[in-house]
């Protein structure tokens, strides 16, 4: 059951990731990215990381991607031209190189013989909200606070750039 679900979600994740970079319409790309995030959340759930899974959907799929879509739809970006529309030597060479790298990757993956590892009992307790909260606010308090300050600085900076020039308003 778990193995089956893993392969379903993994295929979905890889497929939607490929579709994200290959589809010509920007809106479709963004929507495939949402699907990718949701299937990744499913993989997290299989790893018993409930908190991470929910946050993945809540923050990335629910908030960030909505804003992405918002911008794309307002800009009304035209469809990208497919890279295969021009059969130049450079494209052919790039395709060849990509093929070689993909072959190496497949070779490496094929060498991996182990099936899905069992999730240890410790892992089950690590993924809960209580466990994450406890570690985050004791052991990793400093990095957490630094990240918080960094994000705040980024938001303030973005607001400063986005607002109209204060002088020109007078």
């Amino acid at each position: 059951m778990v193995t089956y679900l893993f392969f379903l979600l993994a295929t979905l994740a890889v497929g939607s990731a490929l579709a994200t970079i290959m589809s010509r319409s920007t809106v479709n790309s963004a929507l495939f990215l949402v699907l990718n995030m949701v299937s990744l959340a499913g993989v997290y759930l299989l790893l018993k990381a409930q908190f991470l899974a929910i946050i993945q959907i809540l923050v990335y799929a629910g908030a960030i991607m909505v804003l992405f879509l918002f911008v794309i739809m307002l800009l009304n970006v035209d469809d990208e031209q497919t890279i295969f529309s021009k059969k130049t030597f450079r494209n052919a060479f790039g395709f060849l190189l990509g093929g070689i790298v993909a072959g190496q990757l497949f070779y490496a993956i094929a060498g991996y013989t182990g099936v899905l590892p069992d999730i240890s009992a410790e892992m089950t307790s690590v993924g809960t909200v209580e466990a994450i909260g406890k570690t985050m606010f004791t052991e990793y308090l400093f990095p957490f606070e630094v990240t918080a300050i960094l994000l705040t600085v980024a938001v303030v900076g973005a607001l400063f750039i986005a607002q109209r020039n204060p002088k020109s308003q007078n």
Binding site: V38, I55, A63
Partner: peptide
Amino acid sequence: NVGVLYLLAVASLSVY
């Protein structure tokens, strides 16, 4: 055990 967050996450998906 994350039911409350689950509700918020699902609600945020309905925007799509």
